[in-house]
């Protein structure tokens, strides 16, 4: 697929969906569809899809430990083992996986290979992807946590605290959240990286650009309605609370931008289980990460081994002894 196709296809789809929700909410009275029906539908698709993906992964056997390690495996007592890089027990695995999930440790080791003039081949440490990736994911997580203020009544102290911390510098009113600034910077990096680096452009498909555009729209509409085109937050919270208490009631006049935001959020979560975004669950089920490297000390039996039907030489000889003798082939037993 060419670059233009890869990037334009998702762009056009997103544009179409944006116009769709804007048009429908502005010119018809179908707010119910976008405010109640689609959110419930998206949530149902997300939950079922997520369960389905995890359970189907869980069904694949992992007969042999294929941990990717970069440290000394535990062996004899006098050889110093690196339990974090080559986990031996479940506890070691949990520690390693936790660091991987929380800090993206393996991405930190990312290197870049470049052929310079000379010709000179160099491998150098490339930390930008790690930095942008980590910033993006943590900001996203904090934004989601902050959003709980719309879904909880009374708002728990912890969430108010995170909120305070996030607009610590009180830039403007309503204050600019630090995570908003960070996530915009990070996602811009992640996007430009795909477009500007030829090698990455070559391997980027619509499935890579689509979630990026989706996130741009969600973050863009969210920040736009916080800072520029205000919506009625009281009604937003009424709607959110009514949705999660399963007594949906749609207040009038929230503001069309909110429906854009919500619609794109619904798209994201409905798309989630069927896309690369499933790495949220996948990282915990990657055999190279979640297994203890104990191949040498424990016997791992292949679960799909079945009893092999064998025909031993003794049986063979029993079967053909007379014929063998007749042909003067030596036999073990007379």
């Amino acid at each position: 697929m060419t670059f233009i196709m890869s990037i334009m296809l998702p762009f056009i789809i997103i544009l179409f969906l944006l116009l769709l929700v804007l048009g429908v909410v502005s010119y018809t009275h179908l707010e119910n569809v976008f405010g109640i029906f689609i959110p419930y539908l998206a949530l149902a698709i997300f939950l079922m899809g997520f369960l389905y993906r995890i359970l189907s992964w869980a069904k694949s056997p992992v007969p042999f430990r294929i941990t990717t390690v970069c440290g000394q495996e535990k062996s004899l007592d006098w050889i110093k083992a690196n339990r974090l890089e080559s986990p031996f027990t479940t506890l070691d695995v949990i520690k390693r996986l936790a660091l991987e999930v929380l800090l993206f440790r393996s991405l930190f080791r990312n290197t870049n290979t470049e052929l310079n003039e000379g010709p000179k081949l160099i491998h150098w440490s490339a930390k930008w992807l790690w930095l942008a990736g980590l910033t993006f994911h943590w900001s996203f997580f904090i934004i989601l946590t902050r959003h709980l203020r719309f879904f909880t009544e009374p708002v728990p102290f912890a969430i108010q605290f995170i909120d305070k911390l996030d607009n610590l510098f009180e830039i403007g009113v309503p204050a600019l959240y630090l995570t908003d600034a960070l996530i915009v910077a990070a996602i811009t990096h992640l996007f430009l990286r795909r477009v500007l680096v030829p090698k990455i452009r070559y391997v980027s498909l619509p499935a890579d650009y689509f979630p990026l555009f989706l996130l741009f729209c969600i973050i863009g509409s969210g920040m736009f309605m916080r800072h520029i085109y205000k919506v009625d937050l009281i009604k937003v919270k009424e709607l959110a609370l009514s949705l999660i208490s399963f007594r949906p009631a749609l207040p009038e006049g929230i503001g069309v931008l909110f429906y854009v935001h919500l619609f794109f959020v619904c798209l994201l979560i409905a798309y989630f289980p069927f896309s690369k975004l499933m790495h949220l669950g996948g990282v915990f089920l990657s055999p190279t990460r979640n297994l203890a490297n104990n191949n040498r000390s424990k016997r791992h039996i292949n679960p799909w081994n079945y009893p092999v039907k064998v025909h031993t030489y003794e049986e063979y000889e029993d079967e053909f002894r007379e014929k063998m003798k007749a042909a003067e082939i030596p036999v073990d037993k007379e």
Partner: peptide, 9 residues
Amino acid sequence: YDAFTGKAA
């Protein structure tokens, strides 16, 4: 959480 606090309405 909301079921526990009973304040969703």
